[in-house]
Design a binder for these strands. Structure first.
Lengths: 148, 148
DNA sequence: CCTTGACCTAAAGTTAGCTCTATGGTTAGT
DNA sequence: ACTAACCATAGAGCTAACTTTAGGTCAAGG
């Protein structure tokens, strides 16, 4: 079973242009062609594209993804490097998640703040709230997110 | 207490150029100047910059951050819009976190895969492993991350 | 056979977000 | 007053990741 470029584009929610661009930049491994030069994507191509999309979502650049693809093409001798790359990627993602969880605290504080402001009619009224009227978990959110 | 641009740059781990660029683009609210034109950052400026960095980390563009700053400058009449913006931002972050958790599964599968490949000496050996030698949670990770 | 639609390449254009350069003013120490 | 360190502006330059354009090929259906 093979797929045309437009079928693949639909599956991955990319444009045809983007897929061709990826191939040109070397982030997609070799893609078979018909004798007239039309690309035919097989399961391996789809798997590679899935990996690329995944790595992109972790914030990796196409340049670095290309390095990874080159390692793949190199074969078993690059297994160790690829292993290390994925371990780094894992740590990086965990870091990103905890950063987002931190950022979320400030956003949640602001949700509370503007909820109150909407309720009381002004920002001034929220800032003049006596301290004992501010829930402890909101105070905590506030304090934990002013780290400069 | 006020701060010079280079002190602020250090605090936020940005370059002086970037901070000036932010001001030029209107994402920083009005910053006071000495009579000779030198910027003086006060607590309010720092708070704003903290918010900007936070919104940037959620993936918001400077253009949209500027819209938010314009709302802030507009005063209480934009409270509702700002509240909605933060609620959207919150949903967005939760979405990002769960996307990263999904992506993490494929990365963790690859960590296992290359760990085995390293142990057995080749990728081929991993792919030929009998199914009952692959831990269930690894099979699960694999299946859950091939969603095209 | 001719049109239509999906494909191809090469290359120019776009956008965001910085980053750097040139040029010159300001301020604190000796 | 001189020097060094810091500040300013205007504007050019850069990089990544597309996106669009121009011009052409190819295969199937009427």
């Amino acid at each position: 079973m093979t797929y045309s470029i437009s079928q693949v584009a639909k599956k991955f929610n990319l444009t045809i242009h983007t897929i061709r661009y990826y191939e040109k930049e070397g982030v997609l491994p070799f893609i078979k062609r018909t004798k007239s030069g039309i690309r035919e994507f097989d399961q391996k191509s789809l798997d590679a594209l899935n990996m690329i999309e995944c790595l992109k979502k972790t914030g990796m650049s196409l340049k670095d993804i290309k390095v990874f693809q080159d390692w793949c093409a190199e074969g078993d001798s690059s297994i160790e490097k690829r292993k290390e790359m994925f371990e780094e990627r894992k740590e990086d993602i965990l870091g990103q998640i905890s950063e987002l969880q931190h950022v979320l605290k400030l956003i949640e504080f602001k949700c509370w703040y503007y909820g109150k402001a909407s309720e009381l009619g002004s920002e001034k009224a929220v800032m003049e709230l006596e301290k004992d009227k501010i829930p402890d978990e909101i105070k905590k959110l506030y304090q934990e997110t002013h780290d400069y």
